[in-house]
């Protein structure tokens, strides 16, 4: 299950924190969300380059 969170970016240079472009197509979003190289505690941040659009997704197990 993925929890969607708004608010400020929490990026701290952590490898568990994945940043992806906000405007992902369906396949790209799927790839990010089920990344085989992703540690399960990862936080995924979808944002525009200027961070004007930002969604943080955290997988809740």
């Amino acid at each position: 299950m993925l929890r969607e969170e708004g608010g400020e970016s929490t990026y701290a240079g952590d490898q568990n924190h994945i940043i992806a472009p906000f405007a992902l197509n369906r396949k790209e979003a799927q790839d990010v969300l089920c990344g085989f190289r992703r540690n399960v505690d990862s936080e995924i941040e979808l944002r525009d380059t200027d961070a004007s659009n930002l969604i943080r997704l955290r997988e809740v197990i």
């Binding site: 089920c34 990344g35 085989f36 190289r37 992703r38 540690n39 399960v40 990862s42 197990i61």
Partner: peptide, 16 residues
């Protein structure tokens, strides 16, 4: 695992 689709034990980017 460098690569994994497990719900609890995922992959590892740094190790990969």
């Amino acid at each position: 695992p460098p690569l994994s689709a497990d719900a609890k034990h995922g992959g590892t980017e740094g190790l990969f």
